[in-house]
């Protein structure tokens, strides 16, 4: 009986499959290999970052992403870019999905459907408080639904972007027009282009009316209306979203104060006082032809030449704008130009 069981055991272990698998037994390669679709911690390419904060707004984990800014050096300004904290990251890849730059600043595994029409930003806007206009009434702090999203720091009211959920309640509660702003955080470059177009064409339109405004007395104002139809068409060709365009128009007309410098060569006596005062080197004296030349491209509109010139060559005017009614189709920008109240004279 014992003999038979020993034989049975030997027979059982001597089977070919047993011997074969014993001979080739080794650690599987699968243990260390990851499949091609494996979503690891996100990779960051700082050079593409536009510091929009979309990844932070999107990230479900509170400690995973921080936007940091490297120090300025002599050659270039510090660069802002996201940093992934592996100890907080949950590897969901949502930051890579919402990242608006092309190519992506953040990549995470293989996300096939990173397509423009699916890039759902969890928030369209980012809210910031303009400290210049803020009257510290703290109505927004009371209106805010999120504990600690709007806080007082160093006597300033600031929005903590890591906590803000961009609901817009603070905007409704604010009594000062323009003190809280909702900034659209996608299409940043397009927004910049539209702002440039609007400001440039407004300035050109005022420059064209130089003859009218140069005769203004100190307490007189000059008003004219500017039709935005042409601007809207150009803006729409850049960006198709009317909401964002209207938002830009409104912000510019609320906040923009254009300073206009006019230059009357006939009054100039070549005293060259302004040449040395100009901080940007926009005014130069040409000895051969005996003329003082102002380069409008370089001009900073700082008004120093206006305050320096004894003969009134430089004129200095301030223009304010108002969009009324608030719509892209029927809206007209009302422009008001008035002479500056700054003191004149070299001393």
């Amino acid at each position: 009986m014992p003999m038979s069981s020993v034989i049975w055991y030997l027979y059982e272990f001597a089977r070919k499959s047993w011997a074969e698998s014993f001979a080739i037994a080794k650690t599987n390669a699968e243990i260390v290999e990851t499949p091609e679709r494996f979503r690891d911690f996100p990779q960051v390419f700082p050079e593409y970052c536009i510091a929009c904060g979309a990844c932070i707004a999107a990230c479900p984990a509170p400690h995973a992403i921080k936007l940091i800014r490297s120090e300025d050096n002599t050659e270039e300004e510090g660069r802002t870019y996201p940093v992934i904290n592996n100890r907080g990251c949950i590897r969901c890849g949502f930051c890579a999905e919402v990242c608006p730059t092309d190519p992506k600043t953040l990549t995470c595994g293989e996300n096939h459907l990173i397509r423009e029409d699916f890039t759902i930003l969890p928030t369209e806007k980012m809210f910031v408080i303009d400290d210049y206009l803020c009257i510290r009434c703290k109505k927004c702090v009371k209106a805010c639904q999120v504990e600690g999203a709007i806080v007082e720091e160093d006597n300033k009211i600031v929005i903590d972007q890591s906590k803000c959920i961009a609901c817009g309640d603070c905007l409704d509660s604010c009594p000062v027009k323009g003190a809280i702003k909702g900034i659209y955080i996608d299409h940043v470059q397009e927004q910049k282009d539209i702002i440039k177009i609007i400001v440039n064409s407004l300035e050109e339109s005022i420059e064209a009316k130089r003859d009218d405004i140069s005769h203004l007395l100190d307490d007189e104002v000059y008003r004219f209306d500017f039709d935005i139809g042409d601007l809207v068409d150009r803006a729409r060709s850049i960006l198709s979203d009317d909401d964002i365009i209207l938002d830009i128009f409104q912000k510019i007309t609320d906040r923009l104060k254009l300073r206009i410098v006019t230059w009357d060569d006939e009054k100039c006596n070549r005293c060259q006082l302004c040449v040395n005062e100009c901080p940007s080197g926009a005014i130069t004296y040409n000895e051969e032809e005996d003329v003082v030349i102002r380069d409008a491209e370089k001009c900073l509109r700082c008004s120093i030449c206006y305050q320096t010139c004894p003969f009134g060559v430089a004129g200095y005017y301030v223009a304010r704008f108002l969009l009324d009614p608030l719509s892209l189709d029927t809206g007209v920008i009302h422009v008001t130009v008035k002479p500056s109240q700054l003191p004149i004279g070299a001393d």
């Binding site: 499949p35 679709r37 494996f38 979503r39 949950i90 590897r91 969901c92 890849g93 949502f94 999905e97 595994g109 293989e110 996300n111 096939h112 459907l113 699916f118």
Partner: peptide, 16 residues
């Protein structure tokens, strides 16, 4: 792309 917490569904479909 992941073993346990897959991050595969979104409102509106699947991600890949």
């Amino acid at each position: 792309g992941n073993r346990v917490n897959m991050g595969w569904n979104v409102v509106g479909g699947v991600r890949m």
